[in-house]
């Protein structure tokens, strides 16, 4: 396979993975209004747990927990669930008490501590070295080599992404999603309508974290390795940027967001050769560009590049409505009173 095609499949994989990550964050942030600045922490938990479950017993100086050699997609699902459990702990501790910005403060602190802890505590997930040689799903069974695995797994990820898109669109189009968006717009007014806002936020946090975990799991299975350099706290911002660029509360726009932000700005620059004497400068510039891009989008198109689509009532015009019900409404001509 030509390097270009190989490379395109790699990019395609990242688009699918980041779509899943973006949908999860979009549920939490776009629909639920939760500023989860620790999102990448949940991605990492999914990645580590999936990786450690798929790997065999540690050997040759490696150290990590689990090591059960679980097959695809069991490790992936458990990774998602692990992120979910972690989200449950965090939410129960913080959701009832905190307004948006304090919650964001606690969450960002959480992701920094988690980072610090996983980096230092080697027996858990290998410390700073992380996990390596995570088996490539189906590679042995189907006799795939490095060249064929990439397109194959990109395809698998596409299927997973399609499934998760279907599940997510059912959620966001349901009355559940509607009430969640109501609580995003005004939690007090929503509570005054009889909605247990805490419950709605909690559920959106849990499902969003599951998406984070699964996205992380796919990344570790694709890349075969995962360590703390893959989830610097700034990565959370990338996903936020993807969600905002793609359109807050908009699942289809996410595809564009995933394409522009993580792929165009971070995967692509990895393949641009370093400027001699300035290692990493390209990546720094790309990161700054993302920050600036996001601010510009927020300023000029605060609803995102593709704004949230109106969910129309599909009710007939007033005149038709009365033809069908046979009632006559002479009493209400309203325009002049408003």
């Amino acid at each position: 396979m030509s390097p270009l095609v190989y490379y395109l499949f790699t990019l395609a994989f990242f688009v699918f993975a980041y779509c899943i990550l973006g949908w999860g964050l979009n549920l939490q942030f776009g629909h639920g209004g939760i500023l989860n600045f620790a999102y990448i922490g949940f991605v990492a938990i999914g990645a580590y747990v999936t990786g450690a479950l798929s790997l065999g017993k540690p050997s040759g100086g490696q150290s990590y927990i689990f090591g059960f050699s679980l097959p695809f997609p069991v490790g992936l699902i458990l990774g998602g669930l692990a992120a979910c459990v972690f989200a449950l702990l965090v939410s129960v501790l913080t959701f009832r008490r905190l307004r948006t910005d304090y919650l964001a403060m606690v969450l960002i602190s959480l992701s920094l501590v988690l980072y610090d802890f996983i980096n230092n505590f080697v027996p858990l997930f290998g410390g700073a070295d992380g996990l390596t040689n995570v088996p490539e799903p189906f590679a042995d069974a189907l006799g795939l080599d490095t060249n064929t695995f990439v397109p194959f797994f990109a395809g698998v990820s596409l299927l997973v992404a399609l499934l998760m898109w279907w599940v997510m669109s059912r959620i966001t189009n349901s009355p559940f999603g509607r009430t969640l968006r109501a609580s995003r717009d005004d939690d007090e007014a929503t509570a005054a309508l009889g909605k247990n806002v805490f419950k709605f936020r909690l559920i959106s946090m849990l499902i969003g974290s599951f998406y984070a975990g699964v996205g992380g799991g796919l990344i570790v299975e694709f890349a075969g390795a995962f360590n703390t350099s893959a989830w610097l706290p700034g990565e959370t911002f990338l996903i936020f940027a993807a969600v905002i660029v793609g359109g807050v509360g908009n699942n289809k726009g996410m595809i564009l967001g995933a394409l522009i932000v993580p792929v165009l700005f971070t995967q692509l620059p990895k393949f641009i050769p370093d400027i001699p004497g300035h290692p990493g400068l390209i990546l720094n510039i790309a990161a700054m560009a993302i920050g600036v891009l996001l601010m510009l989008v927020l300023w000029f198109r605060p609803q995102g590049v593709i704004p949230e689509k109106k969910r129309l009532s599909k009710l007939p015009p007033l005149s038709e409505r009365h033809r069908s019900t046979g009632a006559i409404s002479a009493q209400l001509t309203t325009e002049e009173t408003l």
Binding site: R178, A182, D186, G249, L312, L315
Partner: peptide
Amino acid sequence: ELGGLTVFE
């Protein structure tokens, strides 16, 4: 008002 919802919603 729940500004990010339509009147109907």
